[in-house]
Measured scan of single mutants.
Amino acid sequence: SKTSNTIRVFLPNKQRTVVNVRNGMSLHDCLMKALKVRG
């Protein structure tokens, strides 16, 4: 089974995003990807 960790990230202006960290990806990469999608 694939394991994925879901991390809630609290952003300024009362924004919130959820990042799924996959195996083999660093938290930083996942964060940058999530913020790019939002931006």
Score class of each variant (00 low, 15 high):
1 S>P: 15
1 S>I: 09
1 S>T: 14
2 K>N: 13
2 K>T: 07
4 S>I: 10
5 N>H: 08
5 N>D: 11
6 T>L: 04
6 T>K: 07
6 T>P: 06
6 T>V: 13
7 I>F: 08
7 I>L: 10
7 I>D: 05
7 I>P: 03
8 R>L: 09
9 V>T: 05
9 V>E: 01
10 F>L: 06
10 F>Y: 09
10 F>I: 02
10 F>P: 05
10 F>T: 05
11 L>V: 02
11 L>Q: 00
11 L>P: 00
12 P>A: 02
13 N>D: 10
13 N>S: 10
14 K>E: 08
14 K>I: 04
15 Q>R: 00
15 Q>E: 15
15 Q>H: 01
15 Q>K: 02
15 Q>L: 02
16 R>H: 13
16 R>S: 04
17 T>S: 11
19 V>G: 01
19 V>I: 12
19 V>L: 08
20 N>H: 13
20 N>S: 08
20 N>E: 05
21 V>A: 11
21 V>G: 14
21 V>L: 07
21 V>M: 04
22 R>H: 11
22 R>P: 11
22 R>S: 08
22 R>N: 15
23 N>Y: 12
23 N>K: 12
24 G>D: 09
24 G>R: 12
24 G>C: 13
24 G>Y: 05
25 M>L: 12
25 M>R: 10
26 S>I: 15
26 S>T: 15
27 L>M: 12
28 H>S: 09
28 H>Q: 14
28 H>Y: 13
28 H>D: 11
29 D>R: 05
29 D>E: 06
29 D>A: 10
30 C>G: 11
30 C>S: 11
31 L>R: 01
31 L>V: 07
31 L>P: 00
32 M>A: 09
32 M>L: 13
33 K>M: 05
33 K>L: 05
34 A>G: 09
34 A>T: 03
34 A>P: 10
34 A>S: 11
35 L>Q: 00
35 L>A: 05
35 L>M: 12
36 K>D: 05
36 K>N: 15
36 K>E: 04
36 K>R: 12
37 V>W: 13
38 R>P: 01
38 R>G: 00
38 R>Q: 05
38 R>H: 00
38 R>S: 02
39 G>C: 14
